[in-house]
Design a protein around this nucleic acid. Structure first.
Lengths: 369, 369
DNA sequence: TTGAAAGCGGTACCAC
DNA sequence: GTGGTACCGCTTTCAA
């Protein structure tokens, strides 16, 4: 019916269909025989208008198929009712779930979400920040791909729009953040393995690095990775394990030679007897590599993976995992952001959501102690 | 350095920090001692400006920390350089992957992506369409949650902005679409099971319905589901199987009593000997239920699942799957959309991307033939 | 309660 | 090559 209205209008205009020109407040006003201001008042429902005039305008609006131009609206008000989100990799179920948390929180507050994918690339992340800021989002949620280079995040703050960090923190910036207790999680996971008798424990991360062999913190760009490595090392050292860092490997991402790196690690003579995988993609690669090598979980190698993806319970053996409150991470970060948008006065806080270990069947005593 | 510029400016303004007011073209023009028009020309890099003036403007812009207001830009040009995307469930890795395809295609053409989540809810989908249209996206990619109710999609077309359907088609609307060959896929999967000796083949879908038992096509809202059911039934009938529809079940989604529905189905006296799962979430539930029931794959029940999620190869047994070109579905749909944005003249086409079966170990002969 | 008009921050067309 | 200015579609004073 609305559609018919549009068609009629278009055709009535000198007989030829004009589909480009959209219906504006002025059009509605003219059609309803009132001023533009009055029409605007009822269409944007602010101020007060007499009931009869209001009806008249509404009717005209419906007849013409009026749709407000949010761009124009945002331009005058300065608010877009939109929050920008920049994640590392939307293909990763981890972020998918977090984004749903964000969407849900935003939607229930009447906010829209604009999503950008940085691909864990700092350059793209910076570009995304510029774009989103350019679109005048009311606030930004970012999972920063580097905790070292934060100039662009600083610019967000300078623009006066609130910023919330998701999943990861950065250095040298006073900003709200919602993260998981990665250090503690790594500590717990490592201790669990140590308690089971392991002394050679590998941590395998997907984080990119020139060298897959860990040489030091300078290779690390993600706060989560750093936290976890520190957690692993702390637990190891507390147990008197010597040079535990020799078993750390990086760059085991989606597109790379991850399985080769894992195979190398497992074929050294002093091979690890247990592996902690930084996410389930890494866990998957460990699984496949182990299978190819004819090794068994948990008899030959024990495994603990970060992130309780739903499938980790149906493998054989089912995988012991660090369960992270991913949805909550997203939901909470959006909550914080919306709060800051409403009232920017409060000072930044870092919220740490806790994880817990879900014990399944992928951890056992090491093959030879 | 940019930041310092901003700070200086703010502080130089009567000593108090003014963070609200953003730098505009006029500000830059004034600072550079040129007209607004000239400044605009270099800042928006159109038309021609002498090199020296250009440098002067650029310098002033950098000093003040000018950031273009894309909203204003879009308003005058009528283009936002943004495409809107509405998917059913971003948490589903299937859509996550498709969205990455879309993002990649869009990014390489200099377009941004605004994402909305319908949650497979028609009302939310309609709202999302309105919002995105209101934000003046240049085009829309939608995975429609119903092929029957398409009024809102019609409105998109009426607005003059191109629309591309992703993964699913609708009825009564001439529109571009990029989908997989679901019917053919279901046909092939079913035949594979029939060839293995199965006569009682269940199709289990996540699509919501009041009644988990299939009574007829009127329960179905998704074109993909319809296509697949038809494929299953056609292959079954061709093999002389009687009333194959008795084994179809619906509503086995994330939040529901999916496992109970599956358990019921498997405990009937004429239980199916093979199952086709509509996605890997369903497959997962089948896996778990079977395990609880003490049944084995493939000895007691054979399984074929739609979507080759990475984990389906590490279960035991690894699952035979219908591999869908999900990333390509997204990438291609964006390509088509961008093409339509550039040149709206061509008439709509439906592109069907082909799937293929990946044989693994979850299919065997039925337990008793 | 209603109307007229001044912006918001750009673009684009017009003279000069 | 540059400057002046009329828009884009809406919100928001300010008067009437």
């Amino acid at each position: 019916m609305t559609l018919i209205g549009i068609l009629l209008m278009c055709e009535s205009m000198a007989g030829k269909v004009i589909s480009k020109r959209l219906v504006t407040v002025s059009d509605v006003a003219r059609s309803a025989g009132v001023s533009k201001a009055t029409a605007a008042r009822v269409l944007g429902n602010y101020s007060t208008v007499s009931t009869e005039v209001k009806d008249k305008v509404l009717e005209a609006a419906k007849k013409l198929g009026y749709q407000p131009n949010e761009l124009a609206r945002s331009m005058t008000t300065g608010k877009s009712n939109t929050i920008g989100v920049i994640v590392g990799d939307i293909e990763n179920p981890y972020f998918g779930l977090a984004v749903r948390g964000i969407s849900d929180a935003a939607a229930s507050a009447g906010f829209d979400v604009v999503l950008s994918n940085s691909g864990e690339d700092l350059t793209r992340e910076k570009a995304a920040v510029r774009v989103l800021l350019g679109k005048r989002v009311d606030g930004l949620i970012v999972a920063p791909s580097s905790f070292k280079d934060v100039e662009h995040l600083h610019e967000v703050q300078q623009s006066g729009r609130p910023l919330v960090l998701l999943d990861r923190t950065v250095q040298g910036l006073s900003v709200d953040a919602v993260v998981a207790d990665d250090r503690q999680a790594a500590l717990t996971a490592t201790r669990t393995l140590i308690d089971a008798g392991h002394r050679r424990i590998a941590y395998i991360s997907a984080t990119v690095s020139d060298d897959p062999v860990y040489r030091g913190l300078h290779q690390i760009h993600l706060s989560t990775v750093m936290e976890r490595i520190e957690g692993v090392l702390e637990a190891s050292r507390a147990a008197g394990i010597e040079s535990p860092e020799q078993y750390i490997r990086l760059s085991v991402g989606r597109r790379g030679k991850g399985e080769a790196i894992i195979a190398d690690l497992l074929q050294g003579k002093q091979r690890p007897t247990a592996i902690i995988a930084s996410d389930n993609l890494v866990a998957l690669q460990v699984f496949k590599t182990l299978h190819q090598l004819g090794m068994n979980i948990p008899d030959d190698v024990s495994l603990i993976a970060f992130h309780d993806a739903d499938w980790t319970s149906v493998t054989s053996p089912p995988i012991t995992v660090v369960s992270q409150p991913v949805y909550e991470l997203g939901f909470e970060s959006a909550q914080v952001l919306l709060q800051r948008i409403t009232d920017p006065s409060e000072s930044p806080r870092c919220r740490v959501l806790s994880t817990h270990l879900i014990i399944r069947k992928s951890v056992a005593a090491p093959p030879y102690v």
